[in-house]
Write a protein that binds this DNA or RNA. Structure first.
Lengths: 344, 344
DNA sequence: ATGAAAGCGCTAACAA
DNA sequence: TTGTTAGCGCTTTCAT
């Protein structure tokens, strides 16, 4: 039973009414347009019977709207991003919008390709973690009146809507936590990407450490090597020779994974005494031994703010006078890995 | 600078040629249609200069194709699914297709909503992990000549293309591994969903255990409670009173998380002696203490097979005579949690 | 070597 | 209360 896709015209012909009438009924404008009860019912019954599905491509071409939003992050399989994606999806869904997820792998080319692709497909809005080199592409979208909200990071010299967390404060606080618990030689492991949020986290660490008159130790892993053999070698080399270390603070969760693994390899026992804190929480940190202290970003709040702004822009056809910029704070979740150390 | 979106017509007017000519050039059919070099260059230069972006919605309406595929799973934030999604995305990308990811939360209503939504938007194909009650919806898609490939599970009484793994063999093998390493009282923790792949995993466990004359112990957590308080209570109750247990085999990764946590809560030391194996690998199992043995599904191969089939269907406009059904095997990765036990 | 025109399926202003 | 009609932006056949 290969049922050829039925169109509004087919239905109209079949029922002996006009396409307009069918369209009105189907869009719930039957009453408003004063279509008779009888016709409304006939249309309803027939479309239900044949299980009619409208062609949204045609509708979009006509109306200029697709009811689709794009959510672009570095890597959608990362827990932090996928969790936020899910919340956003739910909110969007309840408002009649679909969300298209995509990963840009922090690469400008891929970001650009994706933005283009979706722009060409006329999506209604973008929620984006921008890779560093797509400032002009973002600007272009905005200039073309497409609703855009950034998050996680933004371009200081571009007046965009965004939602971020106070990375500096969160990082300073996490470092202070280790210091308060007796750790004195705290290493900061980060990537070399010159992204605002990473620089803020480093500043937070440096300020907290120097405030206490302690010595900073920073290891920067090239971004492309965060999960490669070379990156692991760098970590291994670092941990092997730094025996004065009593704590490690990871700036991002993808470094924590390999970092912990390598620390274990080198000395399975050492991990129990080492102070450990990482940025970005993960469910499995609760079941690790030791349980890992983490700076948890308020994912629920971030997602809600993003959608609040986006829906606001959509509602006002992107004609809002002021730029909406929100900064939330992150919460340190102390666990076993950063317990207070007995003074030696 | 609010540049109104330029259309082919605008370009044609501007250059004093016809829309046809512009369209031909833009689609690389310039040579073929014998458009003069001069005109081709003029069009190329102008469209580049104004940074023209075609309206794919209009194109889709005209051509009937969207170059979009849908990838629907239970939960895209689950590592297993998101990893496969990424590989699929890459392959699709290289063939000019976009992939739309979505999570059905294993709910029929949500699955149906999503299928409808994308069907209405005329996507070119579906790659789906079906929730149990959407057999008829899948059938409808197929009857409407939409390319569909299922994976992870399928409907035995519906003749569909699919890619699955041999859950029975993998599960039997995992259980046997525990038995071979000296464990005698092995519990199987699973959900109560009556899904083919879960039933196969259970059968594998039961057969392996009974073959050795051992006693099976099965705990079934209601699906909706796998991550709820009630589910945790069930696990807690189970582990508290079963002191004869020397090993646990989890049928799915979302039970492993809470399971491990609760075992630790009850007796932090016990976990070292308990044999543990889980279905579905996770990066963090490598850094847990102990490291956790897991049945790893061949994600790369699954993704590649799925796309091979999908591209085949797309190429032949879904007119293929035979149904393509692929069964792959999963690999047990033995780690610290299932080391051979010293005989008592 | 290029253009005119039809039409994909839908919506909505305007007619009747 | 319902129908006619003109597009939305693009592709593509058929003319010229």
């Amino acid at each position: 039973m290969r049922n050829k896709r039925q169109s509004i015209k087919d239905i109209a012909t079949k029922l002996g009414v006009s396409p307009t009438t069918v369209s009105f009924v189907l869009n719930g404008k039957g009453e408003e347009k004063k279509i008779s009860k009888e016709v409304i019912n006939r249309v309803r019954e027939y479309t239900t019977a044949i299980n009619y599905k409208p062609n949204m491509v045609a509708r979009s071409l006509r109306t200029g709207r697709t009811k689709i939003l794009v959510f672009m992050v570095e890597d959608i399989s990362n827990y932090f991003f996928s969790r936020i994606a899910r919340i956003i999806e739910d909110i969007a869904y309840s408002k009649g919008y679909r969300v298209l997820f995509c990963s840009n792998e922090n690469q400008d080319k891929r970001s650009r390709d994706l933005l283009n692709l979706f722009y060409e497909r006329q999506v209604d809005g973008f929620i984006i973690i921008p890779s560093s080199g797509i400032r002009s592409d973002i600007k272009e979208l905005i200039d073309n009146d497409i609703p855009v909200v950034l998050f996680d990071r933004y371009f200081p010299d571009l007046d965009t809507h965004y939602v971020v967390i106070d990375n500096y404060a969160a990082s300073k606080n996490a470092t202070q936590h280790l210091i308060d618990n007796g750790y004195r030689n705290i290493a900061f492991i980060t990537t070399d990407v010159q992204q605002l949020q990473m620089l803020d986290r480093k500043r937070g660490y440096l300020d907290a450490v120097s405030k206490e008159g302690l010595q900073p130790t920073v290891l920067e892993i090239p971004f492309d090597d965060t999960d490669s053999k070379k990156g692991r070698e760098l970590l291994r080399g670092f941990f092997s020779k730094k025996d004065g270390l009593d704590a490690v603070y990871f700036s991002t969760n993808y470094l924590t994974r390999s970092g912990l693994e390598i620390i274990k390899e080198i000395d399975a026992q050492a991990i129990a005494d080492l102070g450990i804190v990482t940025f970005d929480d993960n469910e499995l940190f609760r079941i690790n031994t030791p349980t890992i202290s983490a700076v948890a970003q308020p994912m629920e709040a971030i997602a809600q703010e993003l959608m609040r702004i986006m829906l606001h822009l959509l509602k006002h056809k992107n004609k809002v006078s002021e730029t909406i910029q929100v900064t939330l704070s992150a919460e340190l979740i102390p666990r076993g890995s950063s317990l207070a150390k007995e003074k030696v």
